[in-house]
């Protein structure tokens, strides 16, 4: 079994709350320096920068897991991962149809920049991305799973995390893997969850300095998106181990 250092929660200049320096070349350089081998660009509610990041990741030997951080109607943040970019686009279109079209005011909420693989800005996403979808947590999860994807609830120990927003996780909505912001919180959080989940802890980097050394490894048979998704589903002996 391979033990692969991962960071499956990164924002680019597309996320209004992220720094405009979060460009593929800059981000990749830091991921390589930190020894990250599997990464996911998970912007808020859109995936326009995934193609540019995928190209640069590929060039530097990092596996990209197609992903997005979606906001449910309850304003819970969910990391959504897919086997292919095709499935991600399908999800993106469904999500776009389910959220309110509010024209972004970059001066207030931040710029939402689309980039190419040469770290150049090529456009702006017009609608505000820090809004909540009209899809509930269960509906959104259903949609991701129907497309063959996996949902990992974001930063359980922080604002916009599942526990923070909804107060508890009942046994009918448990997940195989949860993300925590701080490893120190793992026991406290685990005690509030049903079942025996596993945890990952990603950088959730909104600026270049926040790209951290690996905090966990994925235990997988080979370096492929399929294997990573199996690890996130905690199945067939694959899994994640906090460092």
């Amino acid at each position: 079994m391979l033990e692969v250092p991962g960071d499956l929660h990164l924002h680019s200049c597309l996320s209004p709350c992220a720094d405009i320096t979060m460009l593929p070349g800059e981000v990749t350089e830091r991921l390589v320096a930190r020894g990250i081998r599997v990464a996911s660009l998970t912007d808020h509610n859109a995936a326009c920068n995934v193609p540019a990041f995928q190209r640069v990741f590929q060039r530097d030997g990092i596996l990209l897991v197609p992903g997005m951080e979606a906001t449910t109607a309850e304003e819970v943040h969910l990391l959504c991962y897919f086997e292919t970019t095709g499935a991600l686009w399908k999800f993106g279109r469904r999500l776009l149809a389910s959220y309110p079209r509010i024209v972004n005011d970059p001066e207030r909420f931040g710029y939402q920049l689309v980039c190419n693989d040469r770290d150049e800005f090529v456009g702006q996403f017009p609608f505000l991305l820090s809004v909540a979808s009209l899809l509930s947590l269960e509906e959104l999860r259903g949609l991701v799973e129907q497309l063959g994807g996996v949902v990992v609830p974001s930063h359980l120990d922080r604002r916009f995390g599942l526990l923070y927003q909804l107060g508890m996780v009942t046994s009918d909505m448990e997940f195989p893997t949860y993300e925590i912001a701080h490893k120190a919180n793992v026991e406290k959080i685990a005690a509030q969850l049903p079942g025996h989940p596993q945890f990952v802890s990603n950088s959730d980097a909104h600026n270049l300095d926040s790209i951290s050394p690996p905090r966990y490894v994925l235990e997988i048979e080979e370096l492929s998106v399929h294997e990573v998704l199996m690890a996130l589903r905690h199945e067939n002996g694959r899994g994640a181990r906090l460092l």
Binding site: T71, E74, E75, P100, V131, A132
Partner: peptide, 8 residues
Amino acid sequence: DLLSEVIA
């Protein structure tokens, strides 16, 4: 407390 609800 739901920001999107306040916007709407």
